[in-house]
Design a protein around this nucleic acid. Structure first.
Lengths: 162, 162
DNA sequence: CGATTAAAGGACAATCTTGTCCTTTTTTGG
DNA sequence: CCAAAAAAGGACAAGATTGTCCTTTAATCG
């Protein structure tokens, strides 16, 4: 239900939030978040256009959050790449009589509204500071026992980095 | 966020719920719900495989709800054609350590759970009996003022029907 | 039985999403 | 100024979703 692109954008955003205020290259982000690099590049462009991140070319360039992680919500990230589309009018043919949805579509829209609301209330900082032992973005090879590892431990391949 | 196929399946299901216990042909359903007929045919096949509707070939055949509209939830319809995919494991690479999601994916899954829950609680009967003047499935040419018309008024083109 | 009706199913086309590759532009450091 | 680094952007390929068309199978009625 959430697109692949949304998933990727969120991974990147959370990673950048964790690494703030430092810039990270597409290559670095791709490696840690396990997103296909060339595709991630496009996703990052969208995040940049939407003002979520700022991009910087050249040496020591990369991407960094445009605003504080406490001000950036998951919803903004989602909407930057694949907007949550609320149902404005009954989707059958004509019907654009304001916000007068039929029961079916009102229910559907209510669910979308709930998602929108939950996402809008959650900032990237919230995600990072969640009171739990598992930390955002998981899945790397780890000591077995912990399900996730902190992002800042997930350094982009020791040795070949800058 | 909800696929086109889900939208179509729900329209058809609500229509059949309204018309129960009578069978309706793909042609009739397609006309009222404004779904491309040939595609609807595939969608109905999925609903039939999932036991949501029963199909009947030949003269006086068509589709009808397999169970009472009070027992069929929106969720079942959705899951029959395009399942709500909860996040079971952190989607990064390996990581299948049970249900130990990182904060990001826990949040996302929570939103999915809310949708699943809302859909699971809503039966087709609920949708039909909503206390409102607008009635499920709308969008036909109407007296202007009402945003929707009852399904049973939306007869499949008077004149060329059976 | 035979004609008609309608779903089932296969093949295929159009479109959108996702993913890859390569060139161009900008920035920085020496 | 020059070389290297890194984003921007274009072109294109693979895959999934959506949509169309036609043939086959099953059911009903006369």
């Amino acid at each position: 239900m959430l697109s692949q692109t949304v998933e990727y954008a969120l991974r990147a955003a959370v990673y950048l939030a964790n690494q703030a205020p430092q810039a990270r290259t597409t290559e670095q982000i791709a490696e840690v978040t396990k997103v296909p690099q060339a595709y991630l590049s496009k996703v990052m462009q969208n995040l940049a256009k939407a003002g979520i991140v700022r991009s910087q070319r050249g040496i020591h360039g990369g991407f960094l959050l445009a605003r504080s992680s406490a001000e950036l919500t998951i919803l903004e990230v989602v909407n930057a790449v694949d907007p949550v589309q609320r149902i404005q009018t009954c989707p059958l043919g004509i019907a654009a009589h304001g916000s007068n949805l039929c029961p079916l579509h009102r229910r559907l829209d209510l669910a979308l509204a709930a998602v929108e609301n939950a996402f809008g209330k959650t900032t990237l900082a919230d995600v990072l500071s969640e009171p739990t032992r598992s930390v955002p973005l998981c899945g790397m090879t780890i000591p077995a026992g912990a399900a996730c590892i902190p992002l800042d431990l997930a350094s982009p391949a020791p040795g070949n980095a800058t």
